[in-house]
């Protein structure tokens, strides 16, 4: 009787207006059978976390191409932790220099996907890493 589906939140933190990647990923996750909530542009970390909690998502995908990732991504992870919801998987994507990656991964972003990543790899990663 259990009809569990993976619920994903695709979010654009900050002011960056490039949403081609975010929308492609959202569509790919939908086509992989997930229920995908897309926030649209210009979300604060607080708004993203509030949405994630109300929607009870299994995974949050953050996208930024403006260089603000080092500031915005960890803030999302921090707020999620404050709410005691470390069970939610957080991943990120965009133009993210290699040297920032390990730092983001230390701060709770489980995986960073940059340009050229196959959406199939993202799907696989989510399926293998979301909570049961």
């Amino acid at each position: 009787m259990d009809e569990k589906r993976i619920r994903a939140l695709i979010a654009k933190p900050g002011l960056d207006g490039h949403d081609r990647g975010a929308k492609i990923v959202a569509q790919a996750l939908r086509d992989a059978g997930m229920e995908v909530i897309y926030t649209g542009l210009r979300q604060t970390p607080e708004q993203i976390v509030s949405t994630a909690l109300q929607e009870d998502v299994d995974v949050i995908g953050l996208s930024s191409l403006s260089g603000a990732h080092s500031h915005l991504f960890p803030r999302v992870a921090e707020l999620i932790e404050e709410k005691g919801r470390q069970d939610i998987l957080i991943i990120g994507g965009g133009v993210i220099p290699e040297k920032d990656r390990s730092d983001l991964e230390k701060k709770g972003i489980k995986q960073i996907f940059t340009s050229g990543t196959s959406t199939q790899d993202i799907i696989k990663f989510i399926k293998e890493n979301v909570r049961d």
Binding site: R5, A26, Q27, L29, R30, D31, A32, G33, M34, E35, V36, I37, Y38, T39, G40, R42, Q43, T44, E46, Q47, S50, T51
Partner: peptide, 22 residues
């Protein structure tokens, strides 16, 4: 609506509900 092909769905209504978030 849920996609009849994949069983997934794109839920985009929040894009226009920004003022309500939080």
């Amino acid at each position: 609506p849920t996609s009849p092909f994949s069983g997934g769905a794109l839920l985009g209504d929040r894009i226009r509900m920004g003022e309500l978030v939080g």
